[in-house]
Design a protein around this nucleic acid. Structure first.
Lengths: 218, 218
DNA sequence: CGCCTGTGTGGCACGTTGTGCCACACAGGC
DNA sequence: GCCTGTGTGGCACAACGTGCCACACAGGCG
């Protein structure tokens, strides 16, 4: 918990190293899982590939499967951030749609990185098909996303919105995201395919699911 | 896979013993988890309480947390069965609503057993709040339910229904079920409360979520 | 510059998880 | 009463995940 006196982010050298090793572990874990299946990969193997000791590996992640969460949550963070920053003129449905497009369409200076993240997510989802523990991580990430969505949607909605309805809206938006990714991962389209890419699918899923949720303006 | 030549179900003595021990393990696991938290319960402890060896325990369940799935899936089986048997005159939404009421309202000759199952589910959900592994089981059960819902809904819908839309409808119905149970478990209402009970909540969730899904008649 | 403290890392030991293998007991069919 | 198939228990073992201690290094102080 470092305070940031000046505006610019200035992560201390130690913190940058930590973030670096975390990403390094996550990348190698995803690669190994996708290549050999999560069950045939040991925590020791991941640690060795990432150049850290087994003990250090377990300081970063509780279980070996959880090592891939940083890759999975990368897009989610961006999604929530864009949604929270949506202009007040938009309806909730429009804001959701825009944020989804922004988070799932590789664009801007980091377009290649985003495409790469999408591709590795696809690899993980395919590996998750045969591995219950890995699939659980995917579900857990989405469960946490659903929780995180509730306050953000609350911000976008009228103040007197029923909490249960808010929760349902979060579940609908989250399920749309999840099913879009799973459907895309099962197919062959590229990450920036305008027809069958994740962004296009997610918008279709969103429209199918959130039409029923009352979305009063904020 | 025993064939049943005559109409009546006649589970052989061996099979009945197996089903019995499975339920016995599940019951003790749920009780121990609810009482002490899943993390503080060992597979050895569950096996001992259920009167089987550790080795036998792992023949029935892959992980110690998975031991509670029979209790969690009990209601789901009934739900799917009722849904599949819905009269053709009903719209999909009506059929879903009826099946949910039937599965979540303790009634008929096994009313007390159903109420007990609901109560133990509540205990497990509360224990799951502090235990990621137990929460994963809950999520996994719902993921499987969602998959199982797709063909059942397909049966109830027009043949030319878009597969993706079917999948979304399954996700919506499933999320309604899940959120209704989670909301009920967090409160204090009894399992047969007509206002705040699981059935009433589930119907509210269903109406909130499935209104947007096109539900052409079969 | 040398010391000191706080923190990230590695190594070790340990309880627990989950599985392969073999021997035994028992229900069901000849 | 025998035989076979299958469910169970005991044992050994790799892997998981954690507590504990010692070491290394960045950053602050005199």
């Amino acid at each position: 918990m470092t305070t940031r006196p000046e505006g610019a982010a200035r992560p201390s050298l130690t913190e940058r190293r930590k973030a670096e090793t975390e990403r390094e572990i996550a990348r190698h874990a995803a690669e190994l899982f996708s290549a050999h299946g999560a069950a045939r990969v040991t925590a020791e193997g991941i640690a060795q590939a990432a150049g850290v000791s087994l003990r250090t590996f377990y300081r970063y992640f509780r279980t070996k499967e959880e090592a891939v969460t940083p890759l999975l949550t990368g897009g989610v963070r961006q999604w929530l951030a864009e949604l929270a920053a949506a202009p007040a003129q938009l309806s909730v449905a429009e804001a959701l749609e825009r944020a989804v497009r922004g988070a799932l369409t590789p664009q801007g200076p980091h377009a290649d990185l985003q495409a790469e993240a999408l591709e590795s997510t696809r690899g993980l989802l395919r590996a998750a098909g045969g591995d219950p523990a890995l699939r659980s991580v995917w579900l857990r990430v989405h469960a946490e996303t659903e929780e995180a969505l509730v306050p953000v949607l609350g911000q976008l909605s009228r103040e007197d919105t029923d909490p249960l309805e808010l929760r349902l809206a979060a579940a609908a938006a989250n399920a749309a995201m999840r099913i879009a990714m799973e459907t895309w991962a099962a197919g062959e389209a590229g990450p920036d395919d305008p027809e069958r890419g994740p962004a296009a699918l997610a918008v279709r899923c969103l429209r199918g699911l959130t039409a029923g949720v009352r979305t009063p303006r904020a």
